[in-house]
Amino acid sequence: MTDALSPQPTPSAGATAPATAPTPVAAAPVDARIIAVTSGKGGVGKTFVSANLAAALTRRGLRVLVLDADLGLANLDVVLNLHPKTTLHDVFTGKAQLEDAVIKAPGGFSVVLAGSGMVEYSRLTPEVRNEFFNVIQTLAPQYDVVLLDTGAGISDVVLFSVSLAQEVLIVATPEPTSLTDAYAAIKVLATQQKRQHVRMVVNQAARAGDGRAITGQLQQVLDRFVTTDSGRPVRLIHMGDIPADSSVREAVMRRQLLMLQMPGCPAALAVAQLANKLESTLLKPAGNP
């Protein structure tokens, strides 16, 4: 573990370092709890978690919006098998109103899809910043929870999206490359965005308890090499594990939500537990995380 998580890791393809570090941005004045679902590298199931977590939270009676914040390589529409007439691209270019881009997804929650291949929005320009900030500010008051399904890595666009959230949920798998890139992402969030804590879910866990052990090992590396402005190490909060489950691949291949098609399978039950923990820790009156 220590070898994989060296103090100065070289991020793999999923974690592309930003050319210029973005300035932390204050979150929009909104009522909803905004949670950025992100990852150090791609291919770890981040969008799967976002979509199924939204379904699980909706089942608990919450008003949930998933905003596709992966402006360059969006695939939330593929996971949900949706074919929207209006996307963020249309809103950003003035071809449509924002309310036209909000659609209902299977599972009852709302989504705003980015549209794949938005190359012109893969860089953090002032226009992208303003448009995205306005989207959050306009929509968030209508919901209890907003999940930002960000891109992977530490690009300017990803970090800006994350900066608009009050909480960060980082998704990782037990693979060394995923953990190394998760470490790189957490380090940037702690040093550039002054995050005091980051929440973590381990996907594709082989055995019960693996995720908690992995989180503990990663915390040890953070304690040693990453210090926040407060002088204390960034706190990594283990939110749960999603076990390796063949039902997940089946649902993804069918472009169906696991929570709807196989709600009793081990992975779906784990997502439901994650939703319960998020609701009890983040959606209650103000207190310690």
Rank of each mutant, 00 (worst) to 15 (best):
H89G: 11
F92C: 11
A56M: 10
L62Y: 00
A55E: 02
Y121R: 02
V128T: 14
G117N: 07
L88G: 10
A105I: 09
L113F: 09
D100Q: 15
A105H: 06
G115V: 11
T47R: 00
S116I: 07
F109Q: 05
V66M: 13
V49H: 01
E131I: 06
L80K: 05
P126R: 08
L88E: 12
L82Y: 08
L80S: 07
A101M: 10
E131V: 13
V66K: 07
T86V: 15
V49F: 00
G45I: 04
A51E: 08
F92W: 07
V111R: 11
Q97R: 13
G108P: 11
G61A: 06
V78L: 15
A96S: 13
N75S: 12
E99C: 00
L88C: 12
T125S: 15
L53D: 10
A105M: 09
V49L: 04
L76M: 14
E127Y: 07
L62P: 02
L88F: 05
L98G: 05
V111W: 03
K95I: 00
D100M: 08
V44W: 03
V66Q: 08
S110V: 02
V119Y: 09
T87M: 10
L76A: 13
E127Q: 15
V111M: 06
L82H: 09
R129Y: 09
N130I: 01
L53I: 10
L88H: 07
F92I: 12
G72Y: 06
V66P: 10
L71W: 10
N81F: 05
G107Y: 09
F48D: 11
A101P: 11
L76F: 09
L76Y: 11
P84V: 11
G61P: 04
A55Y: 02
R59V: 00
K46R: 13
K104Q: 14
L98N: 08
L71E: 09
T86W: 04
G61Y: 05
S116K: 14
L57M: 13
R63D: 01
E131Y: 04
F133N: 13
T47D: 06
A74T: 08
V78F: 03
T93K: 14
L98M: 03
A54Q: 01
A114N: 10
H83G: 15
K95A: 15
L82F: 05
F109R: 01
K85H: 13
T86C: 10
S122P: 07
L62I: 01
R60G: 04
N130W: 00
A69H: 06
E99Q: 14
H89S: 12
L62Q: 04
E99W: 00
L73C: 12
G72E: 06
P84I: 10
V111A: 12
K95G: 05
I103S: 11
